[in-house]
């Protein structure tokens, strides 16, 4: 299976990666090779087989919904590349 450059660009856009043209070429080739290798799974009959989500428990556990202290705003914002008051600041959203 050979991925086209258009498919690679579509996936890169979904993943929010601004790839260079060289990377688009390289990933088209490399992803195609990996997809060829994983195509092996198509030969198995999996009808009636349940998918695994948690490998050792029947389901994840929920804890009681009780309030507990969370990070104070200044700690939560301490790593922000750009902040404004008690908010994270981002570039213009509407273009």
């Amino acid at each position: 299976m050979k991925l086209t450059i258009e498919q690679v660009r579509h996936v890169a856009n979904l993943a929010r990666l601004s790839l260079t043209p060289e990377e688009e070429q390289r990933y088209a080739t490399q992803l195609s090779a990996v997809l060829d290798a994983v195509a092996q799974l198509q030969e198995l009959d999996v009808s009636g087989v349940e998918p695994t989500s948690h490998a050792t428990l029947a389901s994840s556990l929920l804890r009681e919904d009780v309030t507990r202290p969370s990070l104070p705003p200044e700690k939560g914002l301490a790593n922000a590349p750009v902040k404004m008051g008690t908010s994270f600041a981002v570039p213009k959203i509407i273009e």
């Binding site: 996936v11 979904l14 993943a15 198509q42 999996v46 087989v49 349940e50 695994t52 989500s53 490998a55």
Partner: peptide, 26 residues
């Protein structure tokens, strides 16, 4: 990220991710 995004993208989820989760059961 590219491989995973492709495998989860519209039209491919059943063929890739879901199938792999089933093989995982086996």
């Amino acid at each position: 990220i590219m491989l995973g995004t492709y495998a989860l993208s519209a039209g491919y989820y059943d063929a890739y991710y879901l199938r792999a989760q089933k093989v995982r059961t086996l």
